[in-house]
Amino acid sequence: MTPYALDANVVHKTGTEDLHGRKRFFSDNTESGGIDIYGSVFNGGKMLNISPGSGANSSGIGITVSGGARGIEVDTSSEAGDAIFVQARSGSAAFVANGGTGFSGNLFLGTNNGSTTSSIDKLGNGFFNGNVGIGISKPLSVGGGSKWLTIDGTTSYGGGFISSINGVGKGFYYYDNGFAKVQADGGSGIRLVVGGTNALTVLPNGNTLVGTTTDNEAKFQVNGTISTTGIVSNYIANNALVVYNSMTNYTSLNTFGDSENVAGNVGFYSLESLRYNSTDGVQKITYINGANAGKLYVRVKSEGTWSAWVEK
Results as ranks from 00 to 15, higher is better:
residue 294 G to S: 14
residue 54 S to L: 12
residue 21 G to K: 05
residue 13 K to G: 12
residue 242 V to K: 07
residue 137 S to V: 02
residue 244 Y to L: 09
residue 272 E to K: 14
residue 288 I to G: 03
residue 172 F to E: 13
residue 102 G to M: 08
residue 192 L to S: 10
residue 108 F to I: 10
residue 46 K to R: 14
residue 32 S to W: 09
residue 77 S to G: 12
residue 10 V to P: 03
residue 100 G to H: 02
residue 115 S to W: 06
residue 159 G to C: 07
residue 286 T to A: 05
residue 58 S to E: 10
residue 34 G to E: 13
residue 160 G to H: 01
residue 167 G to F: 04
residue 270 S to Q: 15
residue 259 S to A: 10
residue 293 A to I: 04
residue 59 S to G: 09
residue 272 E to P: 02
residue 225 T to K: 09
residue 148 W to I: 01
residue 135 G to I: 02
residue 237 A to M: 01
residue 189 G to Q: 08
residue 80 A to S: 15
residue 56 A to G: 08
residue 296 L to G: 00
residue 234 N to A: 09
residue 73 E to Q: 09
residue 78 S to N: 13
residue 66 S to I: 15
residue 198 N to A: 10
residue 108 F to Y: 15
residue 116 T to L: 00
residue 65 V to K: 01
residue 281 G to A: 04
residue 129 N to Q: 08
residue 285 I to M: 14
residue 288 I to T: 12
residue 279 T to R: 07
residue 205 N to I: 01
residue 109 L to G: 11
residue 241 L to N: 14
residue 191 R to Y: 00
residue 16 T to Q: 08
residue 284 K to L: 12
residue 184 A to D: 02
residue 264 G to I: 02
residue 237 A to D: 11
residue 26 F to V: 06
residue 254 N to I: 14
residue 144 G to L: 08
residue 1 M to Q: 10
residue 56 A to Q: 11
residue 202 V to D: 03
residue 47 M to H: 15
residue 261 N to C: 01
residue 86 V to L: 11
residue 252 S to C: 06
residue 211 G to V: 06
residue 154 T to N: 12
residue 76 T to C: 10
residue 289 N to K: 08
residue 89 R to M: 08
residue 295 K to D: 00
residue 192 L to M: 10
residue 67 G to K: 02
residue 243 V to A: 12
residue 25 F to E: 08
residue 299 R to L: 04
residue 169 G to A: 15
residue 98 N to I: 01
residue 84 I to F: 12
residue 260 E to T: 15
residue 247 M to Y: 05
residue 220 F to K: 03
residue 178 G to C: 08
residue 126 G to F: 12
residue 220 F to P: 00
residue 169 G to C: 09
residue 88 A to Q: 12
residue 196 G to T: 09
residue 169 G to W: 06
residue 198 N to S: 13
residue 305 T to E: 06
residue 2 T to N: 14
residue 180 A to V: 07
residue 59 S to K: 14
residue 187 G to M: 08
